[in-house]
Amino acid sequence: MQKRRRRRNNKKTITILPKHVFFLLFFLTVATIFVSYRFPNLIQPVRDGIDTVIIPMQKGINVVGSSLSERFDMFRNLKNLQKENEELKAKVEDLTLQMQLINQEKYELNGLRELFALDQKYPDYEKVAARIIARESNGWYNVFTIDKGSEDGIQPDMNVMAGNGLVGIVVSVRKNSSTVRAIIDDSSKVSGMFVKSSDTCIVSGDLNSMMSDGRIKVTMIPLNAEIHESDEVVTSHISDKYQQGILIGYVTDIQVDSSNMTKTAYLTPVVDFEHLDEVLILTELKESFELEE
């Protein structure tokens, strides 16, 4: 009798099996995937909340980490520094001489431009400096977090530079931080242009060639484009997100496609993505007209 009762009791108690938890959480994640894809604004408060907790810690670690790595680098580089210093001094003298010449030519150019009533070709964009505080850690994508957000006036689609080269674009903004996708990211595509011939092309990130030899792909170059090895590629005038005329890199290995319609090449970015820690954000958005619905 007792045995039977116990058995009945056992049947009544609900045991939670791991697979039930798995399916519950699975459907929860599927729901969040759907919600975040369809209504990105709904999860923005959650992102902001996490931001306020995580960002100060990341900043702290970043200070420690960068000072440590700087110290390591200092020891490593001490020998080379003197030699490099001498070389650089010679270079400075050389460059100041060139500068004078260029300045003279610039006067002349400005005069001529005024005559033609042309605007400056590459206007000086306003920039905000930011520090990289975290990197996407999967190893598959090149996405990183910077320590400036909507409170500093950052907006999505702002261009990000380092030195004089293009780094990427702001993809999402939170209160005190924002996420930047680098041009070497596998899903990034930039409309580029060859400086010498004004031929346009598409510069697309490629993990495969980036990992094997540090280059990304250039596609859709017109077949009759007169381009050569190590030609400069800048952002093009037809891009609707990137400002015109920011240097991306230099092309190598130009080949004709198997379709015989376009050329393909590889591009070495000017920015050193391995040792990137500070970036500049152009606070000006590219003006683009949107189709009215």
Binding site: V30, I33, S36, T145, S172, T179
Partner: peptide
């Protein structure tokens, strides 16, 4: 863990969570 990674780095939230699970 997956949610934290996704919320900080990707636009669609949940893929990392599914894989980790």
């Amino acid at each position: 863990s997956g949610m934290l990674l996704d919320l900080c780095f990707s636009e669609t939230v949940g893929f990392c969570a599914v894989l980790y699970m």
